[in-house]
Amino acid sequence: MTYSEKVLDHYENPRNAGSFGKDEEGVATGMVGAPACGDVMKLQIKVGKDGVIEDAKFKTYGCGSAIASSSLVTEWVKGKTLDQALEIRNTQIAEELALPPVKIHCSILAEDAIKAAVADYRKKRDGAEG
């Protein structure tokens, strides 16, 4: 398997790897994938009072492309509102990283991780309000 420069860069120097403290305010988590499928992505977003994503962190069990896809989306979601973050498409991720066809599922998973994190944030917020 040969990887693009960008995939290798994210793999060697992952951006925003790690986790937020469990009880930090405004933190929501999206976990997608399954060990048996070969990838699990955990994307965490930290949302400010103004509804803008201030920070993001990820951890990924998966191939180089999966690590790169999740590393990339932590950079992309920062500074976006939740709705803007939901507009990120897997095709954009795949294009940016020059993923080969067999690795497109990694970008789909990264898109799913954003959706799951946003859904988790909205669920928590609605729960707190209700």
Partner: peptide
């Protein structure tokens, strides 16, 4: 708890 392909990389 590490994935095979990233391990080979």
């Amino acid at each position: 708890y590490v994935e095979g392909e990233s391990m080979l990389m």
